[in-house]
């Protein structure tokens, strides 16, 4: 992949070539700026600034990793789902997440990095994924709370990403968002059923909402005054709203929906501020957020180990598939040659 990074190639270029490269970069930058100003789309073959490419690659691959690691807390309940219908829905949901991971890795690959490399970075602990998945799914009600709160927060984040300036990312998000909205509804439905069930079931639902509420709010990222990358992402039309704007919007939606559930949010400071016309919430424990991000969450080691194990256990299968494909190809080219002769 020809990455537009002049520093790395200058040594091998003649002065004329260097000048031509600089001209191409200037033209590319002008085109890029125009596309961004028009709120139009950058496509994989278009010139783009190295920092834009790097930012997107990081964001999309982290998003893909989150889908893949995010399969684990829910896969934890597939075998114990309390009805066959719920089992089927949960299986389909976790399967969707593998599908989302696939679209997103493909979108990231258009920026010049292979899926294998991204996967290696993930299992080596070099790449990040959403911290929310480092919390344990302790009870069945967590399947409801994850769908309602975690997927709900993800949708708030992702709907504006459908308009992201990078084409493959925006298009992947359109598809992902459609499925995510099903996921959120099924989570809401699980909680609704529990909230209207036995006292034990209702308690289970409330406990799950209590545990997932704050981590879900923190999914939007640090407060705006502590989010150094946000401004650049917004200038590039990757991000459309600030972390706090999205978080406030999300709290407002949840505050209404929780009433339908007949449950409560574990935050007595949720209110609509008539002056600012914004929803507000109580303080969040950003220290906990940083701890989990730094690897000191309840399930960080477990999640990564499980991914590594699946990857290692599957190595011989991937090798076999590659060897078989190579043999088939060799056979085919032999046949083609024979036919030609």
């Amino acid at each position: 992949m020809a990455v537009q990074n002049l520093q790395s190639v200058t040594a091998e270029l003649s002065p004329e070539e260097l000048e031509a490269a600089a001209r191409r970069d200037a033209e590319g930058q002008a085109n890029f700026d125009r596309v961004i100003a028009d709120d139009s789309r950058i496509e994989p073959k278009d010139w783009m600034p190295a920092a834009y490419r790097k930012t997107l690659l990081r964001q999309i691959s982290q998003h893909a990793h989150s889908e893949i690691i995010g399969m684990q807390p829910e896969a934890n309940w597939i075998s114990r789902a309390p009805s066959l219908k719920r089992k089927a829905i949960l299986m389909a949901k976790v399967q969707d997440e593998a599908g989302h991971g696939l679209y997103l890795y493909s979108a990231a690959e258009t920026l010049g990095q292979s899926r294998d490399k991204m996967m290696d970075d993930l299992i080596a602990g070099k790449a990040r994924y959403s911290s929310i998945f480092n919390y344990p799914a302790r009870t069945w009600a967590d399947m409801g709370a994850i769908g309602w709160l975690v997927d709900g927060a993800a949708i708030c984040n992702q709907v504006p990403l459908c308009r992201a300036s990078y084409g493959p990312y925006g298009r992947a998000m359109v598809r992902v968002c459609k499925e995510e909205s099903f996921h959120q509804r099924q989570g809401f439905e699980i909680l609704l059923e529990l909230a209207n069930g036995t006292p034990e079931q209702k308690q289970m639902a409330q406990d799950a909402v209590d545990r997932w509420y704050a981590p879900a709010l923190m999914m939007f990222g640090p407060p705006d005054d502590d989010s150094p990358n946000s401004r650049q992402s917004m200038a590039w039309n990757i991000k459309r709203f600030s972390n706090d704007e999205l978080r406030h919007r999300f709290v407002g939606m949840m505050a209404e929906q929780v009433k339908v559930l007949g449950l409560t949010l574990p935050d007595d400071q949720v209110r609509f501020n008539e002056e600012t016309k914004k929803w507000e919430h109580g303080p969040l424990d950003w220290n906990e957020f940083k701890e989990v991000l730094a690897g000191r969450g309840p399930c960080n080691a477990q999640r990564l180990e499980r991914r590594r194990q699946a990857h290692d256990d599957g190595a011989w299968v991937r090798e076999a598939a590659a060897a078989y494909a190579a043999k088939q190809q060799a056979k085919q080219s032999m046949t083609t040659k024979e036919d030609a002769a």
Binding site: I68, M71, Q72, A75, I78, S79, K87, M91, V94, Q95, A98, G101, L102, Y105, R306, Q309, A310, D313, G314, A315, V317, R318, A321
Partner: peptide, 13 residues
């Protein structure tokens, strides 16, 4: 169902 999240490739999940 046990294979979901444990398969050799995402395509197999």
């Amino acid at each position: 169902g046990h294979w979901i999240s444990r398969a050799p490739e995402l395509e197999e999940d």
